[in-house]
Amino acid sequence: MTDKDLKVFIDIICHYFEKTTRHAPELKEPVIELNQFRLLDYTGFIKISGNNQGWVYISMPKGMLLDVLNCMGESLSDRSILLDSVGEIVSIITSNAREHFGAQFQISVPVTSAGKENAPISHEMPRFLLPFSWREHQAYVGIALLA
């Protein structure tokens, strides 16, 4: 992972929230996380294969997801739509990154989790976290790429 790769993700995160909610997020200082996962209420994971291998995920509090859905005009707010939405958000962010990484940046369908259960990544793998705030909420994108 390089500076340029990271900037791509930062730009895409900003673009996603600006475009779908008309509110720009504010990126914070990155954090390298080891061992214990700090997952928020809802997390969407995308497995990467091909030239790069690993995972990209976004973890968000429930209140933030509900606000995002509200901005998009979505009236549903049950657990099922929240899981679906967090999966779709990480899928869009990661898929958009193919413009930079190329077609060999292969993307799986999303895996989602509520709370700290069922995270598909081993917590032994170091993660590069990009914390950000959106409106009054705090969330983050985690990148765990081997290449």
């Binding site: 475009k19 779908t20 869009i92 898929s95």
Partner: peptide
């Protein structure tokens, strides 16, 4: 309508007979 932003994906969609391509996120 896809989030796959590399040009080859859009080209492939059109080649396979799609009439248009819209990138996610959309408004």
């Amino acid at each position: 309508i896809s989030a796959l932003a590399d040009k080859s994906t859009a080209v492939e969609a059109i080649k396979r007979g799609a009439s248009g391509f819209l990138l996610k996120p959309f408004t």
